[in-house]
């Protein structure tokens, strides 16, 4: 089986996939990746709540059950902990499995098998076993769903040695990173965001990978670096566009994988711009933004002309009422303000 590896190298601007590819929305790009993975690996299994549902997981899982049957596409009981353990067991026994949690909030029930087993097995048993499982958590928030239907928990998985954490922002990366995640020999937490599902962009029909650990420059610039995760890339690009009018050139970087993190890409950008804003729509304390800011402070301190700024959620659970949601979820406007703070003399 041949697989095309993305040609881009660290530090090179990414302008999207080769021209001429048909456009797909984010969910369809994931769906196509699942389809192609399942076709190529006849033992691969998908497990999760809502896989047969018309509304649970957007359009990302449609037609898979029809195509591959209920033995390989398993819509499961409301048993997050056990089912995640089952996916890990499949992986231990050599079956590639993707465990789908339709919301990250529900995935909290599955923290034990993920933290204590998947993340540590390879280490504890001196490399004799490995756990090539993908655990997909979907961020689904807003619309007055309130505190338990809102969370973006990437940082708790980053915190665990042994896990990889992937957060694609574009349809192209969604497909390529999902394929790379399934093919990786380690447990990978793959996080997508329902707010990205309306993104439409060219996606090659090929079976291709976007390598884990390689970030991308979404927009080149020279005055300020904005590192934005997942959906925040959309807001960051909009902030960059707004500021371009007033003569501020913003470079937007999408790490794509939070662990391993493409540190070199971030440092080299900061060396160029001297200013850093990190945008991650999650809780601030010990968050992805904190980690990236700390790394940049350690490794690119001499290039920094201003304090690093973080754009995150406030340190509070998500509210219900739209009047509070409005001010809770960070937007382009918050990134603009953060950029302006780095530009203050």
């Amino acid at each position: 089986m041949s697989i095309k590896t993305e040609a881009r190298k660290t530090g090179q601007p990414l302008v999207g996939p080769p021209a001429g590819d048909r456009a797909l929305d984010y969910g369809s790009a994931l769906n196509e990746a699942f389809l192609q993975l399942m076709e190529r690996d006849p033992t691969m299994v998908l497990i999760g709540q809502g896989l047969y549902s018309p509304w649970y997981v957007g359009n990302s899982m449609v037609k898979l059950e029809e195509r591959f049957g209920k033995e390989r596409v398993i819509d499961c009981p409301v048993s997050e902990s056990a089912m995640t353990g089952v996916a890990i067991g499949l992986a231990l026994a050599g079956v590639r499995a993707v465990m789908v949690h339709p919301r990250m909030d529900f995935m909290v029930y599955a923290t034990d098998p993920i933290f204590n087993q998947a993340a540590k097995a390879h280490y504890m048993f001196a490399g004799q076993v490995n756990v090539p499982v993908v655990i997909r958590g979907i961020i689904n928030r807003g619309n007055e769903q309130a505190a338990q239907h809102a969370q973006a928990l990437q940082s708790i998985y980053m915190h665990q040695p042994g896990l990889k954490v992937v957060m694609p922002a574009t349809p192209y990366d969604a497909k390529g990173l999902l394929i790379a995640s399934v093919r990786d020999d380690n447990p990978v937490i793959f996080i997508d965001d329902r707010w990205l599902y309306s993104q439409v962009a060219p996606v090659p029909e090929d079976f291709y990978v976007v390598p884990l650990g390689k970030g991308a420059v979404l927009r080149p610039g020279s005055d300020v670096t904005v590192v934005a995760t997942s959906y925040m890339t959309v807001e960051a690009l909009s902030a960059a566009e707004q500021l371009a009018g007033s003569g501020v050139s913003v470079e937007v970087i999408d790490p794509r994988t939070l662990k391993p993190l493409d540190e070199e890409l971030i440092y080299s950008s900061v060396e160029k711009t001297g200013r850093l804003v990190v945008a991650d729509a999650a809780f601030p304390t010990c968050g992805a933004a904190s980690e990236i800011a700390a790394l940049a402070a350690e490794h690119a301190f001499s290039s920094l002309k201003a304090p690093i700024q973080r754009v995150t959620l406030p340190d509070a659970p998500a509210p219900c009422s739209t009047s509070l949601e409005e001010v809770y979820f960070p937007k382009a406007e918050n990134i603009v303000l953060a950029i302006q703070r780095t530009l203050k003399p």
Partner: peptide
């Protein structure tokens, strides 16, 4: 009853 913080489920 939850001052608009919780909604229908809380």
């Amino acid at each position: 009853c939850s001052e608009g913080r919780g909604g229908s489920m809380h």
